[in-house]
């Protein structure tokens, strides 16, 4: 099934399922690639993106869940939707000069971005 169109409005208040799906598409991943980048299995990504499933607070991937929420909320706090796309595509001095969508493919890349975005202006 094709991904739904990328809607970056009100990302902070969106469900976790929507946040995960939106960030995955923003960074240009399919579910298999996103699972690989995050070091989880594809079933986990499908579960997280399923609106009908509540995220278990005892989930083994608490740190990743928090990181994805932090990125979604921070981008929504800081940028208008069209600028979020610009941010994802722009070479970033805080990410070793790489674009966020490329840096997300690195081991730990999503956690580092969450760390940097989470600290901005807080």
């Amino acid at each position: 099934m094709p991904d739904t169109a990328l809607n970056l409005d009100n990302l902070a208040s969106a469900s976790f399922a929507t946040q995960v799906s939106t960030l995955r598409q923003l960074f240009g991943f399919n579910k298999t690639e996103f699972a690989e980048a995050l070091g989880v299995n594809e079933k986990t990504i499908r579960r997280w993106e399923n609106e009908a499933e509540m995220v278990n607070p005892q989930d083994n991937h608490k740190q990743l869940i928090a990181a994805l929420r932090t990125i979604a909320e921070s981008l929504d706090d800081l940028f208008d939707p069209d600028m979020i796309k610009v941010w994802a595509e722009r070479e970033n001095p805080a990410l070793q000069g790489e674009r966020p969508k490329d840096f997300a493919k690195k081991p730990g890349g999503v956690l580092i971005m969450a760390h940097l975005l989470g600290n901005l202006g807080r």
């Binding site: 800081l78 940028f79 600028m83 940097l116 975005l117 901005l120």
Partner: peptide, 17 residues
């Protein structure tokens, strides 16, 4: 400080700070 790091100079939304 807020513009030049992870924000990469992308314009912030109005009233972000």
């Amino acid at each position: 400080e807020v513009s030049d790091g992870i924000a990469a100079g992308v314009p912030f939304k109005k009233g972000a700070f």
